[in-house]
Each structure stands twice: as structure tokens, then as C-alpha cells.
């Protein structure tokens, strides 16, 4: 026994030494950042947001200081943002990767203890992923118009990876604007939702581009339209919902999965500037631009106050949809 403990202590001491040497600081620059940067992902490890965040962190790390990615999932991303809004220790080095969950969460969850716009600094929109309106390959509908006409006669179903996801809300918005009869069938994650769509158990989905892109190529799914305001370079010939459904009240329809960095409202000005500069550099770089197409993604466009206004508009949009779909708790 004594021998065992002595051995354990020896190993432990070696371990401490090894770990301490590993964790020595990498870059020491002037001014901000004075500490490691924390990038909080408001979802579990392994999701799209997590994946994108880790890539961005990886690139940011080369420009600034060590970036530590931290997953803090819960209540549709509002747990992480609520914590950011509270501020306190370390909040001058903490970022959150915000996504549609930031606005949809604010529209759905009751008594949030923060204001989703006023309490934050909006640094930059980094990545946008369009959603695609897809139907099964053997579906009788070939255009948005045909689909809407059919859905006015008979109730059709749309799938989503879960209630309150941007994919679900895209469907609800579509339903609101066209007045079509559509019932939401929630799954848990796109991996579960996809087979039901491929086999024709559900009639339509407004899925993220990277999830459905290979199936559109193989002909198992048909893309009727993209949800963004401009057509996607990945799906040439596929119209936008705005164009294809203008006569059905879809003239203003626009949704996408956007990802951007936000921080606490008292985040140092110097940090904002440095981050924006670093992001500009990264987003012009080869690495980032090689990465984007793998996700059918586009580089984010809006910076600073424009980003803030964009999020505010999103918030209004989703609050209205949530109200009509009876999702506000």
C-alpha cells in the first residue's frame, strides 16, 4: 500500500511538472488582450455552432492570444448569453458565438433577465449559412408555387431538428406569410430529421445547406428555393423564396443561420477594434475561404453597429413569428 501511494505521488508530481510546462503563455502583445480570450459556445460540443466556433478560435489564436473554447449549452443558448450579460470577472476577455438562437431564444423563452440588444457589444457577423427549402426526390411538387397551392388544399408536414431552431422558425415564417396549412414535426437533431425527409414521411424542410447539399446532388432531395435574399452559388438555378413566392406574400421572406461574435456591453473599445481587425484579416485569408465552401457557407457581411441593427431586425421578426405560432411562453 505504501509503495503504491509513493508511486502515485511520484507520478502525480511528474504530471504537475508536465502540465505546467505545457501551459506557458504563447504570445505576449501590448494592451488588450492581457489574458486568454474565452470564446463561449452556447451549444454542446460537436454541433455546427461548436464546429464553426472552434475553427474561428483556431484562426483567431494565430492573430491574437490563446483562445479557449468553452461550451455552455442550455435553454436554446440563453443560458450562455444570460451569463455574458451579467458581466463581472473576465467579461473583458469573453466572447459568445451568437446565432439565430440568440434572437429566437429571446422570442420564445419567458422572463429573460437581459435585453438581447442593449446588453451586448456586437463585434462582427462571421459566417452565414443559407437554409434550403427541400422536398423528397419523388415529391409531386417542383416549385414553391406548386407547394403553396397544395398546402392550401391539404395540410402538409415540415420537419425540423427541434422546436425553436432556425429551421423550424423558417417553416413557421413561411406558414405565416403564405397562410398555407403546415404541421411542424419536431425531431432531435438533423440526423434524425433527415431520414424522415428522404423517405417522404414529411413533405418539406427548410434545412441548413450543408446538411442537405449532398442529397440534392444525388437527387434524393429536390431544392425548391433558398431562404436567403440572393441565390446561392452552390445551387445554381435554384431561385430564392422571395423570387419564387412573391405572389404568395413571400416577397420579404429571408432567413439564414448566421454566426457572429458578441461581448458584454462594457467590453473594452480596444478589444473590439483589435478583434475586428483580426477578423478582417482572417476572413480575407485563404484558410478561412477554403473552409467556407465545405459548409455551403458565406462570409458574414455586417460589422459593429450594422450587425447590431441586423440582430435587432431578426429579433422583431422572430418575436412576431413566435407570437403567431403560439410559442411565446
Amino acid at each position: 500500500m505504501r509503495q503504491l501511494i509513493r508511486n502515485a505521488a511520484k507520478t502525480a508530481a511528474l504530471g504537475v511538472a508536465a502540465v505546467l510546462t505545457l501551459s506557458s503563455p504563447q504570445v505576449l502583445a501590448e494592451g488588450w488582450p492581457e489574458d486568454n480570450i474565452r470564446l463561449v459556445v452556447p451549444y454542446s460540443a460537436g454541433g455546427t455552432t461548436d464546429l464553426l466556433s472552434r475553427k474561428v478560435a483556431d484562426l483567431l489564436q494565430k492573430e491574437l492570444d490563446t483562445v479557449i473554447v468553452e461550451n455552455r449549452p442550455g435553454a436554446g443558448s440563453t443560458v450562455a448569453t444570460a451569463q455574458l450579460a451579467r458581466g463581472g470577472r473576465g467579461s473583458d476577455h469573453t466572447l459568445v458565438m451568437a446565432s439565430p438562437g440568440h434572437t429566437i431564444g429571446a422570442a420564445i423563452y419567458p422572463n429573460l433577465r437581459y435585453n438581447p440588444i442593449e446588453d451586448f457589444r456586437f463585434i462582427r457577423n462571421v459566417i452565414n449559412i443559407p437554409n434550403v427549402m427541400v422536398v423528397p426526390g419523388n415529391s409531386p411538387y417542383n416549385t414553391v408555387a406548386e407547394f403553396v397551392e397544395a398546402a392550401k388544399q391539404e395540410e402538409l408536414s415540415f420537419s425540423s431538428p427541434g422546436i425553436g431552431s432556425s429551421i423550424h422558425m423558417s417553416g413557421e415564417l413561411f406558414k405565416n406569410l403564405t397562410g398555407a396549412k403546415m404541421v411542424h414535426v419536431p425531431f432531435r437533431g438533423s440526423g434524425e430529421a433527415l431520414p424522415a425527409l428522404l423517405s417522404g414521411d414529411v413533405d418539406v424542410a427548410f434545412e441548413n445547406m450543408p446538411t442537405v447539399y449532398p442529397h440534392i446532388q444525388s437527387g434524393k432531395l429536390k431544392a425548391l428555393a433558398v431562404t436567403t435574399a440572393t441565390p446561392s452559388e452552390f445551387l445554381p438555378g435554384v431561385p430564392t423564396i422571395q423570387e419564387a413566392g412573391a405572389e404568395y406574400g413571400l416577397g420579404d421572406y429571408e432567413t439564414s443561420a448566421w454566426f457572429g461574435l458578441i461581448a458584454h456591453k462594457s467590453f473594452p473599445e480596444e478589444g473590439v477594434t483589435k478583434l475586428q481587425e483580426a477578423l478582417d484579416k482572417i476572413m480575407a485569408g485563404e484558410d478561412f475561404n477554403n473552409f467556407l465552401p465545405q459548409f455551403g457557407a458565406e462570409a458574414g457581411k455586417v460589422v459593429g453597429d450594422d450587425f447590431r441593427n441586423f440582430v435587432a431586425e431578426e429579433l422583431t421578426k422572430w418575436a412576431e413569428v413566435a407570437e403567431k405560432a403560439n410559442l411565446k411562453r
Binding site: A45, G46, T48, G189, G191, L194, P195, L198, H215
Partner: peptide, 14 residues
Amino acid sequence: LGIPGDVITAIILG
């Protein structure tokens, strides 16, 4: 099929 059956395969898909 390109369908991840659980979280781990979703990450591998990534």
C-alpha cells in the same frame, strides 16, 4: 447515406 446516427458521428461528419 451521409446521415449521422448520433452526436459522435455528427462530429465525424463535420
